[in-house]
Design a protein around this nucleic acid. Sequence first.
DNA 1: ATAGGGTTAG
Length: 695
Amino acid sequence: MNPKHNLKQAIDSLYRHTHVNPEAYTRLVLDCVRLNDTHQAKRLQTHMDNNLFEPTTTFIHNRLLHVYANSGKLSDARNLFDKMPQRDIFTYNAMLKAYSKMGSVDDLLGLFKTIPCKDSVSYNTVIAGLGTRGCVSEALEVFVRMQKEGVEVTGYSYVSVLNACSRVLDLRRGKEVHGKVVVCGLMFSGFVCNALTDLYAKCGEVDAARWLFDRMRDKNVVSWNSMISGYLKNGLVEKCIELFSEMKLSGVKPDVVTVSNVLGAFFQMGRIGEAQKLFAEIEKKDVISWTTMIVGHVQNGKEEDSLVLFNEMLMANVKPDKFTISSVVSSCARLASLFYGQTIHGKSVHMGVEDDTLVSSALVDMYSKCGEPTEARKIFDTIHAKSTVSWNSMILGYAQNGKDLEALTLYEEMLNNGIKPDSITFVGVLSACIHEGLTERGDQYFRSMTKQHGIVPTLDHYACLINLLGRSGRVEGAFETIKGMPYKPDSLIWSTLLSVCKLNGDIEHGEMAAKQLFELEPNNAEPYITLSNMYAAKGRWKDVAAMRSVMNSNKIKKFAAFSWVELDGKVHKFVSEDRAHPESEAIYRELNRIIRKLLKAGFTPNKNLVLHDVGDDEKLESICYHSEKLALAYALMKKPEGRKTVRILKNIRVCGDCHLFMKFVSRIIGRTIILRDSNRFHHFSAGCCSCKDLW
DNA sequence: ATAGGGTTAG
């Protein structure tokens, strides 16, 4: 029947006897090895200890050690190793294996030094262990030493050392090893050739990899996978899919690794349907293929589907790991779904992965993007070994939520803790300065990047600087910055300039920025709308009309705007002037009630923010029923009582009228509103917004 | 008498 169950029963019966003959132990330990069953191995060892059984050879203990080593049970391995009366080369090699899988590099090298009679296997194990930790020079050192000491260098040695090189993309040293492989005549070994193919592919020399691949006599599934993943890593997505077709014709059966690679290729091309079809065809779906599906959906803006997939994965009894959890957490972040985010947070705690860098920073990001910087901070404070990534997530979280001074304080704290800031850190720091209007301080931070931290500013940082200068009225300075950049300005730079021009009513520079954007992104309606609104603000209706006719003749469509709210775990989506919701009538009644209340309190809709120069009544109509207002009305209607915060999400930037509207609602109706638009967070409370009216 | 070390995917 079930071999694992049989083993358990055999060991159960062992426990009913006190005297056991050595052959029985030998038989059982071999079963433990065959099934790699650490649990039964431990029970077996306990039984031997309890009965003071002292084996005459090292064999049984060595096999137990091997089971522990192979399943990463480092402490069990170490305990057994420490109390073994005699040790031979098999003992040492098994312990080396345990360290190379789990322990520190120091432990690994420390043990290696003490081994009295190292053989080829000892060397190969250490080289492999060093390689998986990215210690290439150490791995190479051991490799050289083994040659000097006359230990036999085998295919195993070459594969391990090549793997070390490819892990850190060290092609120069990899090529030296390649030379040695040729001299030794090991080019016909499949393992060695696969490792070489992988090395060249990973290091960006796809053609060299393909050359080797084409000359391989017996390509196995790993050969194909190495080449397919090489194409994918180098962005040759079509080649990757093409080779997959060739593979199917070759008669080598694709496995779950092949499919995971090809899935990645389909997702990169947005061919989601094909990815789903391919995924459905794999019989044995593992964590990685599920996670690839989840990540692929998130990358293609299908966050809800990624959560559905996550559920299906759990139903299929595949255990998620830290990669899965961090990607579903970021799915929740992008959806700003506090409900699911908290559920998955709970799951991560249960799994014990919440302290992992990947997971914890995703959690900090999730709570921040749900407008909960205080919760984010709680997570941040529990992280044991905070990495640059952890600090970055929290600094950015504060900055996104209008807690700009907290962001800057945290940055100073980061420096005091001796953590090195990186390029991302400064995006957070600079945007905090922008919103606080700290022009001088921001400028200093910008200069400190190169001077004190050796970080080359990217276009993102220049965009922050332009924002910083522009918002303090120095549009000319912002423009000079663009001219002085070591890069060609991209659309981000020009749209940043355009937005500060709008703030300053600087039509001259605004037109210049818009003109660049028209060329860089001919289908983007944003610059047309912004420029048009700038003209409208100055009453230049002729120019407004001209903009509209250009948009019409070039068939430029506004990006569909929508907002959504999450109520009791269900997402409700609205578009402008939406009548599709089943409770539409009630929603409009509620919204009109709110509008009347606000008008009495002095709210004046800002009619200049409408693109079309239509009649005033019509303007009012189209502006009053923007999607975020409908979402707000729905949320207030469904949750009228209590002081609960209303959270609304919007896929594009909030307009000035809606912003003013929300401020009024927070004061007159007395509810806190968190509105996340495509750009940042707006916390409305008592008539004020955390963005300080700059966005 | 028995035993060990290596390649591919997020």
